[in-house]
Each structure stands twice: as structure tokens, then as C-alpha cells.
Design a protein around this nucleic acid. Sequence first.
RNA 1: GCCGAAGUGGCGGAAUUGGCAGACGCGACGGAUUCAAAAUCCGUUUCCCGUUAAGGGAGUGUGGGUUCGAGUCCCACCUUCGGUACCA
Length: 744
Amino acid sequence: MISRLESGEEDVHGQDWNSLDQQAQQAYLDERRLAYLSEQVVNWCPKLGTALANEEVIDGKSERGGYPVHRKPLRQWMFRITAFADRLLADLDTVDWPDSTRAMQTEWIGRSEGADLDFELSNGSQLRVFTTRPDTIHGATFMVVAPEHPIVEQVLKDSPDGCDANAVSTYVEQAASRADVERMADQGDKTGVSLGITASNPATGESIPVWVADYVLMGYGHGAIMAVPGHDERDAAFARTYGLSIQTVVASGSEVEECFTGDGTVINSSTPALSLDGLSSQEARTAVTEWAEQQAIGTRKIRYRLRDWLFSRQRYWGEPFPIVHDEHGGIWPISETHLPVELPPLADFAPEESDDPQPLLAKAKDWINTTAGEAGVDPTLLDPTTPVTRESNTMPGWAGSCWYYLRYCSPDFDSGLVDPQAEKYWLADGVDLYIGGAEHAVLHLLYARFWHKMLYDLGFVSSTEPFRKLFHQGLLTTWAYQRSDGSLVPIDEVEEHENDLYIETATGDEVTRIIAKMSKSLRNVINPETVIEEWGADTLRLYEMYMGPLEASKPWNPRDIVGVFRFLQRFWRLAVDEETGEIRAGDEADDGIERQLHRTIEKVGNDIPKLAFNTAIASLIEFTNLATSTGTLTRDQLDRIVRTIAPLAPHLAEEIWHRLGHQQSVAQAPWPDFDPSMLVDDMIELPVQVKGKVRSKISVAADADEATVQEIAMADERIASLLEGETVRKVIVVPGRIVNIITG
RNA sequence: GCCGAAGUGGCGGAAUUGGCAGACGCGACGGAUUCAAAAUCCGUUUCCCGUUAAGGGAGUGUGGGUUCGAGUCCCACCUUCGGUACCA
């Protein structure tokens, strides 16, 4: 029945199901649940006193705090995110996200196409491997299994002839005790031990040795590989170290390469069992897979690098799982009417630094040990007097960050996740624009997508993706100082002298000023509060937007703040008489200013949706400078420019807006209109190039045709003198842009 | 190593589809105002040659290429930043 279900057949009857015993039913369901308990080798961080998800471990250290992480077996709650791997991958094409982020997620999900192949072993068992290169099967000259592979234990038990059991067990123990950090440090140096058994290469019929080596990971595929040293760098390195045979079975097409990992033409691969010579790698992959399927020794397989998501933590601060356990290992949900489960009060809830994984909530004995009725399990499921223990793990922070944006639609809605009406209104196509740091690329942004898809399947949300458009703001960097040996000096230990000379106060040595990330240790973190105190919130806001493109990392330079502050002051003085506090307004609108105003409204209106705040502000500064030097604005012009600056400097705008006599907030006012005809001048200046160099400028009517422009250009005094004695070969006129005269 | 992003004045940065490189701001220099300073206002400010000027030359990480014309497109390389790390 199970195999029929697996193959997608639908004629499975209830009686078939009922014929299974309860355990088998449970096992079948558990294998498919989105949330399940599983004994896992987890990333245990003793310092934090908790296990971490794969994504939270960076270079063998915890993402938060950078503490060492060890591998420990632990029974944990998992999310079957792998069941969504294909959708998470495919739907990346449907979102408007930065390429770099999509690339990161694509790699994290890591889809690879290949085949599972079974090899017969000399000890009578079978070894299953996954390979993306079935086309190189004739070149498989040895096999490698991970130290944790079950075959290793089996071999140790049987200890066949030719197996140095001591060497094997020593190697396996070493591999197990080594922390991930160490394992990473000596990448490239491959170590391993022969198991003393052989496998039969089904294509060549040859007996090839089986080795154990830690460059093969138990966590991917089957923890075993067929090694093709002729066409895989890692296998090649291993073969060279231990003098194993190397076979070339793919021609690179060019010169002889030691280890060619690309696709080419298959050679040296004709045996009675299977002949591939002359096929392309692509064709050979299909041929070998089909052959293996016929021989019942393999199947086509798509595999993902993505692993299931470890979703429990041993900390106090996290949502408790609404789950209790009975004495027989049964798992029972707490009914909805008893949700949410609240954390028990605890005198001491600091994490305990420990090598012995123990959830913190286990300390709350009275809370942990309860009855089904007390905990809130549906009495029709379980007798209320049944003694149960509460789940003592808690959820990680992601539990909240995965759906908070949904809650924003209807924060007061109390009969569900989100008000369906509000969800349809706000999130019909996901969040319109989501701005956040690139550091969330494979954490928050992948997890939230998974939750959203799950909620979509359950009918709670109407879009398949949570964040339609994603934008990463750049990091703010700042000055830091570096000694000649490369070490860094906190900024408050350095004195600035003239001519960009920087001296470390303690030693008197000269240090160099560099750009670095803001960090507590360098004491170069900027607190926005102090900027607001000194310059005001509008200045801070404007400065941050004016620094450069939103997505770029850029240095915080306090020296530049005064620039936007001056601008705001000038804008204020343009609108308000400093003596009286009254609005300064003229009666007569200057034509040049009016035109510039239309251009500014257009520019700001275009730039804001593009998040190009820096250029929007530049155009506002330009307008203000022009207006200040040319005269005063009319009331009507003030009215429009205040509305234009309002999104960028809301406080200033609001103040002037009210002095202009408006009762409502400027935020409620409509965006000012501009007249497209006001954007172009009647007469424009056009550069004239001779042989690609600008030699003069001419003034022509904006709508002048090419012939007229050419005539005026040729008639220009300077151009005429330059063209004297030259043959004009060609004249290029780009209307409204440029004239280029080619001579010779 | 691989993947991604980016290299433009003293500094942050502008620059439509390939069409005047350096908008705007900071800093610097000069001037006005002031008893003085702050603040404000005006002017200059890519570099080199040219006393000033007129003018000329070079110039967007490096080297080539395409084009009437390249910061922008193509090829090769260098550097910086971010991500990733034996995933078979």
C-alpha cells in the first residue's frame, strides 16, 4: 500500500490503511508531517546552552556571539522544509529580488540531478551512492564512505581479511571527536583508511577498494560515493595521496588535463556490460541512468543540499510548543482553546553553559509535570487525568519573524492569524516592498518563504510568496584606525592632527585611517539619538538619505551632516521671515523659478519610487539655491515645494505647511502636479564636437530639425575656423543631445 | 577556489537608450559682512601646460576591442567588499 501511495496511485482504500497497525500508521504519518520529532546530530553551542540550525552556524561558530559549536545527538523538533525545496527554488523566478540574494538561496537549496547507484560489496552487502556524474561510472576506481556510515560498523564487527580494524576504529573515533572547525581548517588534505573490502563496479565488473574518509559527509546523499579521480578534484587529491588508480573517461577536447571536471566526450568506457564511447557527457548520463534502472541497480534522483530545519531551542525566551508527552511516548497537541501556552515564571532564566544538552524549561518541574486536562489536551483524545509532561524546548526567534508581517495587516484581530479581508487588501500579492539587510538572505528570507507557502497551502494567505519586491539597504561603515602591523585601534584612542596625520595617543605612533564596519570593540558605533539632539530628526533623516544610494555600503562621516542642516536652514529662511516668523511670499512668480519648480516636482516624484533619495534631495537643494539667489517664492509656489519636500523632511514641511494656513497635515495633501511642457526650455544649448572633442556650444530651438542644427553648428565661428582646410566627411546630429563633425 | 556586487576629484557621490564626465554636498582657498568670532552671503576648486587670459593636453582600477562617439557595450586581468566552503 505504501509503495502504491508513493507512486501517486490514488486507489488506496480505507481497509488497506486499517490493515496497518497503529505504530505503522503513526510511522507513515510522522514521515510526512511538516513538524516532527527526530533524533538529530545537532549543532550544540555550550556557551549559549542551546542547539542551533545549520544556517545559524558560520565557520563552526555560532552566528550570534561567535561561540564554538559541537555536534551532539539530541531529540529535536524539526520542520520538513525539504518538502518545499522545489517550490522554494522555482518560485525564486517569480519575485523581484536582488540577483545576489536569489543566487544565495538557490545555492543554499542546492538542487542537483543525478542517480542513486547500488554497488555489490565483497562482504555480501550493498552500498548505495548518489552521483551527479553517472557518465563517469567506468572511471570509478574506488569507493569512499563517511566515518559515520553503517557499513563501517559492520566491517569492524566482521573484520574481514585485509582490514586493519585498529586503524579503522582509530580513524573513525578521531573523525567523530574533531570539531567542525578543525575539519574545515585542513580542507584539501585528505585523510582516510582502507576498509579492506571491495565493491564491484557494475559497468566494468572490476573489484575496486572501499575506503573510509572524512571528506565524505554522512549528511549528504547516502554518506558514500563512487570516487572518480579522473574527473573530480577531491577524489583526485585522495587518489594521489594514497596511490589509487586514476582513469580518464571523459575527453576534455583540448589539452590533456590532469583532472577534467567538465563535460566532454566519453572515452575508454566500452565494456560488455555497458558501452558509452563517443557519447557526450549529457547523453551518457541518461544512458547510464536508464541502464541502471533496467538492471535494477539504480534510479534517477534529484537531491537538495537543503536540510530539514531544526526548530527547537533550549532557551527560556521563546514560544513554548503546544505539545505534551504521555508516559508511552505519545505526543498530544494542546487544543486551540487553551492557546497560547505561556512560559512559566522562573527565578533564574539565564542560559546555562553546559555540554549536557538540557532545555532550560526543564527547571520548571511543577509546570512540566501535569495532567492532560490541566494542560488543555482535548478530552476526546486523551483522558484528562492522564499524567503528561510538557514539551520543554522552545521555538527559535524565527517563529515570530516568519509571520509578523501578516499580523501587521490586522493587529487587533482576535479570532485568527490575520483578518482574511485585511490580508486580501494588503497582501494580495505579498508585501509590496520589503527592505532589510542582506545578512538575512538564507535565514529569515528563506524561513519566511517556507511559512508563507505552508500558510498558503492551508488557505490562510492568498499569495504564494511573502515579499514581492526585496531591497537590501547598504551597511553603514565608519572610520577606524589601523596600526602598521594591521591591528585596529579604537577611535577614542587616536588623535587627529593636521594634514591627515593620525596618532595613537598611548604610543605616539602614527596610524592609518581606514573604513571599517561599525563595531562595539572599535567604539565607532554612532547613536542616532545624539545626532538628533544636536541637529534634529529631519537632518538625521536627510543625511542618511543623502549619503548615497540606499543599497550601497557607505561611510558615516559626521563632517558632512552640516551640509544638509544648512540646506534645511536655507529652505526655512526661504519660506519664513526669521524676524517675524511670518511666511515670506512674493506676488510675482519668476518664470525661471517656476520652470525649476516643475522640474523639481517631476524629479522628486520619479526618484522616490526608485528609492533614489540622494538625487531627489540634490534636486531640492538645487531648487532652493536658485530660489534663494533669485528672489522670493509666491504663496502658491511655497505650497507646492513644501508638499514636495514633505516626504523627506516631514517636520520642517509640517511646520511651514501650518504657517501657510493649512489645518490638515501635509501628509494628507495631494502630491503637486507638474506641467510636462514646463520641463523643456524653448532654446537649448548643444555641444558641438569636431572629431569627438567638444569645441564649441551652440544655442538652438529645442524643436529644431537636424538640418537646421547642422547649419547653425557649421556656421559657428569657432567651428568654422577649425574646419578651414578640412574635408567634412560626416556630420552626426543627435537631436537635443550633440553634434559631431567628422573630418579627414 | 567558487558565486555575487563594486572600482569616477582631497572625501561622499551624480551622469536617461552609448551623446558636454564630475550634478549636489563636504572639505579647501579667496572675498563680503563683523571690533572680533560664529552664522550668513558671493566666487574658485579633476589634474597638467599656459604669468592672468585665450587656448591646449590628459583623465572614470589596468590592458586591449567595437563605435562618428564608451564611465556606460565586448574580451582579458587587477583590487576591494559581501556570501560560501570537501554537498559527490
